[in-house]
Design a binder for these strands. Sequence first.
DNA 1: AGTAATGTCTATAGTAGCTGGAGAATCAAG
DNA 2: CTTGATTCTCCAGCTACTATAGACATTACT
Lengths: 147, 147
Amino acid sequence: MKIGEMAKKTGCKVVTIRYYEKEGLLEKPGRTEGNYRLYGQDDQERLEFILHCRKHGMQLAEIRKLLAFRDRPQRDCTWITELIDAHIGNVDGQIAALQHLKKHLEELRQRCAGGRNGDNCGIMQSLDSLNACCASCARCAPDAGRE
Amino acid sequence: MKIGEMAKKTGCKVVTIRYYEKEGLLEKPGRTEGNYRLYGQDDQERLEFILHCRKHGMQLAEIRKLLAFRDRPQRDCTWITELIDAHIGNVDGQIAALQHLKKHLEELRQRCAGGRNGDNCGIMQSLDSLNACCASCARCAPDAGRE
DNA sequence: AGTAATGTCTATAGTAGCTGGAGAATCAAG
DNA sequence: CTTGATTCTCCAGCTACTATAGACATTACT
């Protein structure tokens, strides 16, 4: 199949397929007489593997490792478990950071009930001083005592 | 003060300060005879405003708008509330996506109890087929029926 | 057979928000 | 006077793509 067909089958954009090839995640495929890329079932499966990993938020570097393993599986695959665990920890951290951020944003939001004048907009004042919000928050301002 | 001192006071890296200047968020400061940047209290406060906004996950483009307003406050600041609201919605979406991702990762993690052989590593198999995990999940594979 | 529309090719540059390095100049301390 | 720290400018790189331009190939329709 040509690149467009594989793109349609996998839901991946044509440019992204070419990008993955350039990055060495996909092998250089054969070509038609007219220099069009020609893919087979294997290529499609490899691409789907990549897309599944991406769906799980993995980085291309991680996927590269997994692909190498996939190409030549070895006895020990505990590192994969570790990789996934590290990845989960990563995601956990991101969630925590975002939830914390949301709390601050909601506090900030409270400071403006809407329709205020610009001169004494509570939001702007908060962003200026940050004292009501972050100064007292160890996570945001571990060095708050200095200010 | 010179750039290094302001960096230390604000916890912002020197290169980042120069970057903000290049991006027009900070004004071009005066210079010493030896061409070193010289900052005052105003500059520090402006930088802190920027850093506070960044801490709230705002993009530089948004901060640019807020800075323009800060420079010349107008009657109506309802758009700021809207901006914050949109921002909160954004953060909410990110959290939801990450929590969903985490669920999948944990399912994936279950497939390998550790110490398995590479040939039949459950994680790799899942990433290959994705059938146990995502195919049945409307959020991940809205087109799952096609496969 | 001609033509128009679509698909594909390569190459390059841009996105966000910085980070890092090279090589030169300046400055403070001993 | 020398050493080391700081600063300067400029340019390249990071992630994972996306967008654009200009040319060639293929397909569909008349």
